[in-house]
Simulated assay, not measured.
Amino acid sequence: MSYEVPRAAKLLKEVESKYIGLNAGRTHKAGKKVKVQRSPANPGEFIIWFGKTEIAKVQALDLTSTIQYTDGREQL
Rank of each mutant, 00 (worst) to 15 (best):
K57Q: 13
S39W: 05
T70H: 07
E4Q: 15
K52F: 10
M1T: 00
F50Y: 13
A8D: 13
G31V: 14
P6Q: 03
V15D: 04
M1P: 02
L12Q: 08
V34E: 10
K13S: 01
Y19A: 10
T70S: 04
L11M: 15
K52W: 10
S17E: 12
D62T: 00
E14T: 00
E74N: 12
K10L: 01
E54V: 06
E45C: 09
L11R: 02
G51P: 09
Y3W: 08
P6M: 07
R73Q: 03
L12M: 11
T64C: 06
K29M: 02
Y69M: 13
K32S: 06
L12K: 14
G21K: 07
Q68Y: 01
W49C: 08
V36L: 09
L22S: 07
Q59N: 06
A56P: 10
P43H: 00
I47V: 14
R26W: 05
V58S: 09
L22P: 02
K33L: 07
T53W: 05
S65R: 12
A9M: 01
E74K: 11
P43W: 04
I67T: 03
P40A: 04
A30T: 06
N42W: 01
K35D: 13
Y69W: 09
V34D: 09
L63C: 04
E4C: 02
S17N: 12
N23T: 12
I67C: 05
A9Q: 04
K57A: 14
R38C: 05
A24V: 03
F50G: 11
Y3K: 05
I67P: 06
L76C: 04
I48M: 07
D71P: 03
T70V: 13
T27I: 07
L11K: 01
A60W: 01
G51M: 14
A41E: 11
F50E: 11
I67H: 06
Y19P: 00
I20Q: 11
I20C: 06
G31Y: 09
K33D: 13
M1G: 01
N23M: 12
N23K: 14
K10I: 04
K29I: 02
Q37L: 13
I48F: 13
K10D: 00
M1E: 00
L76F: 10
T64Q: 13
I20D: 11
V58I: 08
D62S: 08
T66I: 09
Q59H: 09
S65Y: 05
G72E: 01
T70C: 07
V34N: 10
